[in-house]
Every structure is written in structure tokens, then in C-alpha cells.
Write a protein that binds this DNA or RNA. Structure first.
Lengths: 204, 204
DNA sequence: AAAATAGTTGACTATTTGGTCCACTTTGAT
DNA sequence: ATCAAAGTGGACCAAATAGTCAACTATTTT
């Protein structure tokens, strides 16, 4: 089968880091190659373009994230607990990245999706799909919470869209302001938004 | 006083459009000059760099937006009405841009801020400041609403952060998915998030 | 061991890009 | 009318960038 190599994986890792820490537009193929320790010839042996690499890199990463989310959103966990656990998870991820890179970086998919929304069609499509899948986790937790009578959410899909927008907004604000504390509001915001019973304002 | 020119303004307009329609990283100085109908020599006569131009362009635009927001958030308007009016305004702006450019483009500041968060310090600072100012409109409407007894929000700053994150999340989703309808949820989301009385779920 | 497969390398090209320079032109003020 | 300030044009440069290619090397299969 000829010689084997992990250059492909190194390239995917490199582009992920560079885009997340900087931006898609500001990362060059030369930079990616240097970070991955791979020559340009090899880059073009594996990929056709930066966009092509980005798609592969995102897919690979999503595979990993998905299993983490599967366990965070396990139906064995009470639905509101799942959301709380997800908030904690996001906080932990950002805290980790900050201690490693010195910056809060937010959600790589959301930032990238926003950046290239009018360019790179293939990449954009993939990002949309993955974000849609992520929203499903929230939707199902919300539906279960409604079924359990913990919240009132007759339209779980709509609620999930709202909650998802809020989460992504928070993460992006955390990136823009480089402030981890911003994410500290996530759980409270979730409860407010869903009107979780027991934490509601005292009715007037 | 020598000759006068609007080349400076044309450059600011051009960079705003290019960044909004594409991204900061993908717009080049040559492109900006071409769109503005200005030669590079003149560009560098007025500005030191792309980042320098971007700061000026943002400031200029913010001056205009601010007066619009001032009237949308006039204290003479009932607070919840202000928020509803703002949602409508956002929708109109996006609908307009879509019919002009063919795409929903979201909030230029938020997208830009997310893109360059780890680069271009001066620009980033300015974006943070303006976003902070925008949040103040929400904060004051929320405070007034609380005072009027229309909502329960003992910490208006916190509520404003939550609502702002939600709005920005929605706008960015609208950009990412190029879907205007996403913004149709804004008013409902606002009411849910603030627990506006009269639209609350029936208590169990 | 040979052959086929898989991956590497670095030198190379063409283009784009940011940035400079300065002679030139237009305009308002005197 | 003239002079200085304000702005323009475009040639020019160096560096960065995307992308190509053919010769080379390492590994597995037969």
C-alpha cells in the first residue's frame, strides 16, 4: 500500500487551529503547511485548495465532537441537566483554550460560518448542516423537558432556535470581548429563556 | 484650502460594503480602491492601512446609526414597544440589504468583531466599544420596563447582555443561513426571554 | 528482490498584494 | 493672477501567495 503518513491529519489539525485562533481569510496555505510541518507539494497531493482542506478538517472534528455531545445529551440525563451540562462543557472548552492560547475563541464553526457566508459555497453548506445538527441536541432536550412538564414549550423547534441563537451569541461575544465570564451567564440565561419552573420570577 | 474631494468618504463606503458583503480578510486594498474609484496613491494619502480605514469607516457609520437608534429607543416610547420597534428595524434593514445584494448579511460589527478578534487591536477595541454602546439601548429599555412593572428584571444589565447575545446570535444565524425568516422570531424570543407579562405561559 | 503504491521534496512560475514615490493637477485664498 | 494647500495618477518595487512539477524516497505487496 506504499508508505503511510499522518500528514493529512496534521494539515487538518493545523488549519483548524489557525482558523480558530485567527480567521479563514488570514490563514495562508504556506502558514498551514509550516504549522503542519508539511511541504506545499504534499499539501496539494492531499487537497485541492484551502476550502477543500477546511471541509475535511471540519468533518473530522465534528466526528469527534459529536460523540461528546451524544454523551452530554444522553436521554438518560434529565433534560434540563443536559443543558446545564452543555453550558458547563462550553465553559470548560473555552477556559482550556484560553489557558492554552491566551484567548477565548468562541465557536469555530459559527465564526467561520459568519466569515465566509458569501464565499466558499461548499464549506458554507457543510457548516450549515453541522450547526443544524447541533441545534437538534437542544431541540430534543427541550422537547423532553416539555414532556416532563418542567418547562412550557409547545414548539420545541422554535425554542431550540432561540436558545441556540442565544448560545452562539454568547460564545461570539466571549470571543469578541475575550472574556470568559460572559459565558458564566449561560445557565441563568437558559433558565430565563425556557422559563424553567422553580426559577421563575414570583408572579405579580 | 486646496482642492476638496469626497474620495475619503468613497473609500469608507467601499470598505464597509466589501467587508459586509464578504469579509475583512478577503477584501484587499486594491479592491477597495477600485470600488471607490480611487487610486492607491490617494488611498495612502488618506489612510495608513486597511485597518485604519476600517476604523474610520466604522466610526462614520456608527454616527449615522446612533441617531436612528436614538429615535427608536426614545424614552417617549413605551419600553417594550422600543424593543419591538428595534426588531422591526433590524428586519427591515436586512430585507433591504437582501433585495440589494441578494444576501442577508447580519450585523457588520458583530461579524467583523468575531473575525478579527485576535488581530487588529485598535479596530477590535473600537468594535467592542460600539457594541457596548448598542447594548446600552437594550439595558435602558429593560430598566424602564422593569420600573413600569411590565417585566421582572432586577438586574437590567444582565438581562440586556442576554438579550443582546440573542439578537446578535439571530442576526448571525440569518447571515450564515442566508434566511431572512430567522429574524421573524425576534419579537417572540424577546417576549419569552424577558417574560413579558401577558404573554407568559399559563402557570401550571 | 522487484514492482507498485503512497507520499515527499524543493525548486520553479505567475500573480496578487501592500506599499512608496513624485510629478502633476485642481482649487480656494490672497 | 498667483501661490500654497489639498488631492490625484500611475509607474514602480519587494514580498507574499497560490499553484505546478518531476525527480526522489519509503513502504507494502507479490
Amino acid at each position: 500500500m506504499g508508505r503511510v503518513s499522518d500528514a493529512k491529519e496534521r494539515l487538518m489539525g493545523a488549519v483548524r487551529e489557525l482558523i480558530w485562533e485567527g480567521s479563514y481569510g488570514s490563514t495562508t496555505i504556506d502558514q498551514i503547511c509550516e504549522k503542519a510541518g508539511v511541504k506545499k507539494g504534499s499539501f496539494y497531493y492531499f487537497f485541492d485548495s484551502k476550502a477543500d482542506l477546511a471541509v475535511a478538517a471540519i468533518d473530522e472534528e465534528w466526528g469527534r465532537r459529536r460523540t461528546e455531545l451524544d454523551s452530554l445529551f444522553s436521554p438518560t440525563i434529565p433534560p434540563i441537566e443536559r443543558l446545564r451540562g452543555y453550558c458547563d462543557y462550553c465553559y470548560r472548552v473555552q477556559a482550556e483554550i484560553r489557558s492554552k492560547c491566551g484567548c477565548v475563541l468562541g465557536c469555530p464553526l459559527f465564526s467561520l460560518g459568519s466569515e465566509i457566508s458569501t464565499q466558499e459555497d461548499r464549506l458554507q453548506k457543510r457548516i450549515q448542516e453541522i450547526l443544524d445538527q447541533k441545534r437538534k441536541y437542544l431541540e430534543s432536550a427541550i422537547r423532553d423537558a416539555h414532556a416532563a412538564g418542567v418547562i412550557h414549550a409547545p414548539d420545541p423547534a422554535a425554542k431550540a432556535r432561540t436558545l441556540f441563537a442565544y448560545y452562539q451569541g454568547l460564545l461570539t461575544e466571549a470571543r469578541i470581548h475575550d472574556k470568559l465570564e460572559i459565558l458564566g451567564d449561560a445557565v441563568r440565561g437558559t433558565y430565563e429563556l425556557l422559563g424553567v419552573k422553580g426559577t421563575e420570577p414570583v408572579p405579580a
